[in-house]
Nucleic acid binder design. Sequence first.
DNA 1: CCGGCTATGTGATAAATATCAAAAAACGAG
DNA 2: CTCGTTTTTTGATATTTATCACATAGCCGG
Lengths: 198, 198
Amino acid sequence: MRHFKTSCMITSKLKGILHNIIQFSEDEYEFIEPYFEKVVLKKNQILLEEGQLCNAVFFVESGVLRNYYDNNGLDVNLSFTFENQFTTIIEAYINREPSKISIQALEKSEVWTIRIRDISKEKGSFANLSTFIRRIAIRVLFATEEHHNMIMMNSPVDRYRYLLEKKPELIQRIPLTHLASYIGITRETLSRIRSNKY
Amino acid sequence: MRHFKTSCMITSKLKGILHNIIQFSEDEYEFIEPYFEKVVLKKNQILLEEGQLCNAVFFVESGVLRNYYDNNGLDVNLSFTFENQFTTIIEAYINREPSKISIQALEKSEVWTIRIRDISKEKGSFANLSTFIRRIAIRVLFATEEHHNMIMMNSPVDRYRYLLEKKPELIQRIPLTHLASYIGITRETLSRIRSNKY
DNA sequence: CCGGCTATGTGATAAATATCAAAAAACGAG
DNA sequence: CTCGTTTTTTGATATTTATCACATAGCCGG
């Protein structure tokens, strides 16, 4: 299914977000604009499928994405990306290899597909550009770090409590079925934790 | 216990490694050299303790380090750093906050303590410097990503097999006691997995 | 508003892993 | 080499979590 392309103009809202990461000049914005593409995903639509190359970084303007690994038919959710956050499949993106991980919209979502990596070496590129990419990469990896620490440092019950306190938007917006594997347990166990059986 | 400072001259070996990450000019090397300090750690000596600020990035010239979290007296090992690898406590380093994680030498180790972050804004600093820091950060975070994927994608037995195949140096050099929490299980269970009880 | 689909909850049971205790093996200092 | 310490192994048991089966609730499209 092809994405529905609604616009290629960088909105002022997005510009504001980008500005907090790096200060591009107006010339630079004009230069990179063609490499930004906004797509609208329907609920459950796949943005990136396992096995594909991942040549873009994604920015969620509205909606939620999930990055998941298909473990013989059983999904393992690795991360969720909300409004105003970036995501990509770092390993696939950096090493230019097929992704083992897929990205799917959990709700109707507006997502910017940012393909600026490959202009880094072209004539007319500028130093800011690769700095920008590295900063995004650090943000994305940093989110993984946080999840990694949560998984390693706590028992399942404590992980749920941690999310309740530190990431309430996850608990509220992500269906239990998807949250469970993110916490590292089954749906049934999460359901029982939630109703205070433990 | 104070570290024994053996040298502050960047060796040609280290220069070679740095060169693969960023090309500093000779002038730039001279400028950053005072911010490199080599320390020799005895076996089991602590390099960074929970609660301290982490203002450096570390490079292991020889030996092995472990990054671990003290979960009420019970260690959880988050990563091991071997020769020619970098490490730091990313969250503490970037946010300049006390570290929840400690770093300890598992063997006698020679480690470079690199404190270049805080010269980034000084007079005389150069663009390369912050690029260098970000590249190191990405390397360190990338290693966490790999571990995160291993933990999330596999059962304990498969995680052990994964390490056997992909990271044999871990299995060979890291004592079982420390490996266990890294794999996310107890010593006893790892011992049984190793002797093929499962 | 209805019917079908999907998500969540619950109970019974099985499987995996932790815990505790103690023996065996490996290691290291002198 | 030897003694004492630390690490690893092993066994018995307890606990946690998964699995399976099914009931219930919530949701969406017509």
